[in-house]
Design a protein around this nucleic acid. Structure first.
Lengths: 147, 147
DNA sequence: ATAAATGCAAAGGATTTGCCGTCAA
DNA sequence: TTGACGGCAAATCCTTTGCATTTAT
């Protein structure tokens, strides 16, 4: 078993433990969905997760996949790459700037900070990417949602 | 006219100029859509843009708003806050890390970099936000899309 | 028994597409 | 008079919801 295998094993026992902590039953469906997620390195969409899980559980429904993705996110077992996926959000400000994003109400506020403008990766061409821009996303709760 | 007003004026002439450059007619609809975007500080969704534009042009259709948003993005007149809004993208890696995002094919790759982990805003509570996390998004073209 | 979890199908929301009419070069 | 643009409606894609059934405790 290679390094990834070890990792999957460790994360699956985290999964089991966390399920107990929050009172979730680790059903067969949930276990397979979570394992597929842990084994995926490509940040799959729910549809892709559904496809992959379907190979092991052909009868599974999309609803189960979607519901459990939410369940895992609520339990802190899973994250979204972007919280802004429900609808497009537009920005006519073409100057270099960053964003404050409220993870609760999805408010987005521009944030200018020279210090952040200087952010650079250590590696010049990370993973073969031709980098065009570094953007810092500052996540948290806006003043209204903190209250 | 306040500072924002000046800004809107300047950006609208950028708009007109850029339209000429790329051979787009600056129709009434386009001009109003773009002005609404420039005047909006809340990073609106296409639906919200449609509502705001509708006040001035009640007959406008959503299709026109959506089509022109794409047109503006292609022309470099407008940006998306997140390129990952068409579908959710999941991440079971709970360790602190950052992302490389290909703006063409939407590939997302994890990126670990101690240097980026140290990124902090200059202001302790920017805009009243209670910050929980700083994430750096490195945008560019992946090796496949560069080719 | 009781609550939680699944699956199906329908509904809902966001976005895109096809098509046709109109307008300007 | 040709191509670009706008508007309508249908289609599509993604996601959620309601409800009946099953499963676990």
């Amino acid at each position: 078993m290679g390094a990834l295998g070890q990792d999957v094993k460790a994360r699956m026992s985290d999964f089991t433990r966390r399920c107990k902590e929050v009172g979730l039953s680790a059903t067969h469906q949930r276990t397979v969905i979570y394992r597929v997620l842990v084994e995926s390195r490509d940040h799959p969409s729910p549809e892709v997760v559904y496809e992959r899980v379907s190979r092991e559980i052909p009868e599974i429904s999309r609803a189960t996949v979607y519901k459990n993705i939410h369940t895992f996110i609520d339990a802190g077992l899973l994250r979204e790459v972007s919280e802004l996926h429900q609808t497009n959000r537009l920005d006519a400000n073409l100057e270099r700037h960053h964003h404050l994003i409220c993870t609760r109400c999805r408010k987005v506020v521009d944030y200018d900070d020279d210090q952040l403008d200087g952010v650079r990766a250590t590696h010049t061409e990370p993973d073969g990417f031709q980098v065009t821009e570094y953007r810092v996303e500052i996540r948290g709760l806006c003043s209204a949602c903190r209250a």
